[in-house]
């Protein structure tokens, strides 16, 4: 539901980078969205397209990379993928685990047109 706020944040972040580096038109924006970020990729793309209509980003493609949930056990140090929402260590059963990925809400790169 907060995809609109995130889409606005994508646009403002890229806009300021384009201005700062005086970049040519942006062809693609790649973002990494963690499984625990409660963001629906389709809804994010829909919102991004809606707010960039009639702007310099109208032709820009938004690429959404999904990041799986992974964790590490603080007791036995076992690294594992969190499956079926069991946030406990499959080896020693401890619930003392820290997430190593899956909470991302990041921009990873932008692709710009050739400057000629």
């Amino acid at each position: 539901m907060h995809e609109l706020a995130i889409a606005q944040s994508i646009v403002s972040t890229v806009e300021s980078e384009v201005r700062r580096q005086n970049l040519p038109p942006v062809i693609q924006i790649a973002v990494r969205i963690g499984a625990l970020s409660d963001i629906v990729p389709d809804a994010l793309i829909f919102n991004f397209e809606a707010i960039t209509r009639d702007t310099p980003f109208e032709q820009t493609e938004l690429l959404v990379e999904h990041v799986e949930l992974k964790a590490r056990c603080k007791v036995c140090n076992h690294a594992f993928e969190v499956e079926n929402l069991f946030f406990s260590c499959p080896d020693c059963d401890s619930g003392q685990v820290e997430l190593t990925q899956g909470e991302e809400l990041d921009i990873s790169y932008i692709e710009v047109a050739d400057n000629n």
Partner: peptide, 14 residues
């Protein structure tokens, strides 16, 4: 085309 890495969280302003 040139790829420009951008590091940063989308919630960084907040």
């Amino acid at each position: 085309m040139a790829q420009i890495p951008l590091k940063g969280k989308l919630t960084s302003e907040n």
